[in-house]
Design a protein around this nucleic acid. Structure first.
Lengths: 359, 359
DNA sequence: GTGAAAGCGCTAACAT
DNA sequence: ATGTTAGCGCTTTCAC
């Protein structure tokens, strides 16, 4: 527990000089520097970041606020953030924030506020006006990954375009009966992502002259969630689409598993597209819109750090490029299911043509 | 940015009294307390944890060292730790540590050392003697989840017993040809877990009078890893076992997917057991030894906190109970594959009996 | 029950 | 290039 004073004494210099020699700030003659450095080494001196923070007001620590750590998108963003942060000499303090209002409030009013973080990065979390105010009151850069919040920098893919891209791919293959398995709009941690993906989906449909219909199912953004909802959907021959656009790869994979359970072959009888491009997506042969969460995390750190040194911390919104990764989960729709929509409700034989999965 | 002095002034008391009133330490008359509290509220005062730490030496922050954040086991332990920590009013600082030696050193010699953490929790990370020394030098409680390190408290399931349990289940079903898909012993973040699971596996085999043979395959602890290794193994009729014991559910699920790819039916033609019990395991009908990582995380926090207040920070090793969760992925071995082992190499027709998966 | 004062360990003017 | 001085914002003896 050697202190700077100990080091200074051993090196025969003042604390100020010792501090300068060790931190690299200010001019120190090479010889003194060396004396100080070796004295520090001898004593096993490590600067107390607490003391340094108290005087400088900087903590070299950034807070990351995320609703999950285990879901793909979130864990990868976190890994990206961590990577970039440690490279820059920053710690990462993790705050998991879910719906529970009392816990949320605790995080925003107590934990984040204690002058412990130099910046905050939020990951796809929908903030209430109060929460935004609390964050802004920190007087520190705040950047949101996965969606924009008024008054703070943000970083995301263009979710409308991503959804449109996915849907147009399906349309171009000839699909006319596509269902969107997407996030529940009312979920607290929504964040417009869900609604934007739905909007892009509908835009593409409208562009192809397909009138709005019963084409959206609120789905938990997990593999089991996608599985369950798809099982219901695909199990009913009358509702069964030829293609599914899922809001996340987890949903998409759940849907593929459901199809497998029902004996529906992918992609011959059902095309599936998701958004993310996790390693499992590759294994499932899932067609997906790639969104590189890791890079989003790293970029968020750049934005935050940049804002810290900027004179006027102007907010910036950055959109990352997207690409469609076509794998084996999409194909032209099977002939038999391209019956005119109108027939679905009336002509029972249209459904009966399909293998009956209800049994 | 109101300071304690501001609050004290507004309340008409000294800083000392204000501090006592706000922190709850020491006796303060109810009326003064109320005056101070409302003054604090009026000013939006939040104590600077930095300043408090400087004087108390406590940071209300614990460091978590983990090689991954995205793998099941790790992310769930982290969520458990986070949950318990925030409940107790602690922050969680995350350090991801992988093989890269320079990064590791940075974490241990620079980040963790700066008097920033009251305790450290490591998650299944194999520490070098130097690293253990560095941690111990902190003079703070260190608890290891997922394996024991000499000189620090630890928390884990009994990995030998878990592996034995899984293997004995397979043996009791009549399997004689079981292969263990387990972690590479040489991997840096091993931690004896892999070797203990292998040991338990071999113990069970020995107990059943099955001589050691070519029964272990080093496998990355991921779904793609399990998939790839199982694909090779199962694709060769001569090597194909009737059962697989996987060191993790991720491997196990990869193996099930590989079987699916090869047209091998689970469990009729192949039994699979893993360790973990993630929600996906349930979906795959995977038989597994349950290890509740979330609880491991919460318990680690209790241990750490307890050690902080203990006069003599004695180390404790705690083993969590395990249970075998039997789902549909295990069954008695098919008749045709119970040929005597000796025939595998010589009687080509024994292999030819099986569907040829090489093509 | 409350106040005065000391100081945690460092950095940042300001001198020299 | 180096030393002196003054705090950063709290908690905690020690008096009263």
């Amino acid at each position: 527990m050697a202190s700077l004073a100990d080091v200074a004494r051993l090196a025969g210099v003042s604390k100020a000089t010792a501090s300068r020699a060790l931190s690299g700030a200010g001019e120190v003659s090479p010889s003194t520097r060396e004396r100080v450095v070796s004295a520090a080494a001898e004593l096993g001196f490590v600067a107390s970041s607490t003391a340094a923070s108290l005087v400088t007001g900087r903590t070299r620590n950034v807070g990351v606020v995320s609703p999950f750590v285990s879901r793909w998108y979130f864990s990868e963003v976190i890994e990206g953030v961590e990577e970039a942060l440690i490279r820059e000499g920053y710690d990462l303090t993790l705050f998991r924030v879910q719906e529970d209002p009392s816990r949320r409030q605790r995080v925003f009013d107590y934990f984040l506020v204690r002058k412990r973080v130099d910046a905050v990065i939020t990951i796809a979390v929908a903030l209430s006006p109060d929460e935004v105010a609390a964050l802004r009151a920190l007087g520190r850069p705040v950047v949101g990954v996965g969606g924009g919040i008024p008054g703070m920098s943000s970083l995301q893919i263009d979710d409308v375009a991503a959804a449109r891209l996915a849907t147009e791919h399906l349309l171009s293959l000839g699909h006319r009966h596509i269902v969107h398995l997407g996030g529940d709009q009312t979920e607290q941690m929504d964040f417009h992502i869900h609604s934007q993906r739905l909007a892009g989906f509908r835009q593409a449909l409208a562009g192809a002259g397909i009138p709005p219909h019963d084409d959206f199912l609120a789905t938990p953004l997990t593999i089991p969630g996608g599985f369950q909802v798809a099982l219901d959907l695909l199990g009913d021959p009358r509702r069964r689409p030829t293609a599914i656009f899922a809001a996340s790869d987890e949903i998409a994979i759940g849907a593929i598993m459901a199809a497998g359970r029902l004996g529906i072959r992918v992609p011959q009888e059902l095309s599936v597209v998701g958004i993310d491009d996790h390693e499992l997506s590759e294994m499932h042969g899932l067609t997906t819109v790639r969104q590189v969460p890791r890079e989003q995390g790293e970029l968020a750190v750049s934005l935050a750090l940049e804002a810290m040194s900027a004179p006027a911390p102007e907010t910036r919104d950055v959109a990352l490029p997207i690409t469609l990764v076509v794998r084996s989960s999409t194909a032209a729709p099977p002939e038999r299911t391209t019956l005119p929509r109108e027939s679905h409700g009336h002509v029972v034989r249209a459904g009966a043509d399909l293998p009956d999965r209800d049994a």
